[in-house]
């Protein structure tokens, strides 16, 4: 009989990337934003925090880019959290159009990151 013991150690590191658009997320900027997020996803990222705290305006094209990110991540078994915007018009549009029911909304990036 031997006292030897095998200890298997596995470390799982989940990669979470925060994306924070700092200007208007509209028809003009949305394609570039979408391209950036898709390149992250292509790079293996599937957990994304969309930090809208510094986004002053967002239109339907901007929202379409966010939804596209969400669908891609979920398809890969990942997910997206959204940090509430500070700008009232953006907050309002998210609530009025019920996008706050599509994304899991968080108050801060820290809260969003720890929620995965």
């Amino acid at each position: 009989m031997t006292n030897q013991m095998n200890i298997a150690i596995h470390e799982n590191v989940v990669r979470i990337v925060t994306v924070a658009p700092e200007g208007r997320l509209d028809a003009f900027s949305a394609p570039k934003f979408r391209e950036k997020v898709l390149s992250l996803i292509a790079d293996g990222v599937k957990y994304i925090v969309l930090d809208l705290s510094q986004t002053p305006f967002m239109d339907s094209a901007g929202m379409a880019a966010l939804v596209s990110a969400l669908k891609q991540c979920r398809q890969l078994g990942g997910d997206v959290r959204m940090v509430w915007p500070q700008a009232d018009p953006v907050k309002r549009i998210l609530s009025l159009t019920k996008f706050d029911r599509v994304f899991e909304m968080k108050n801060t990036v820290e809260e969003a990151v720890s929620s995965f």
Partner: peptide, 16 residues
């Protein structure tokens, strides 16, 4: 203003 009661069509596979 009357808020929507579900996200836009085409966003989620089920409709709320």
């Amino acid at each position: 203003l009357l808020p929507a009661d579900a996200p836009p069509l085409g966003v989620l596979p089920i409709n709320l």
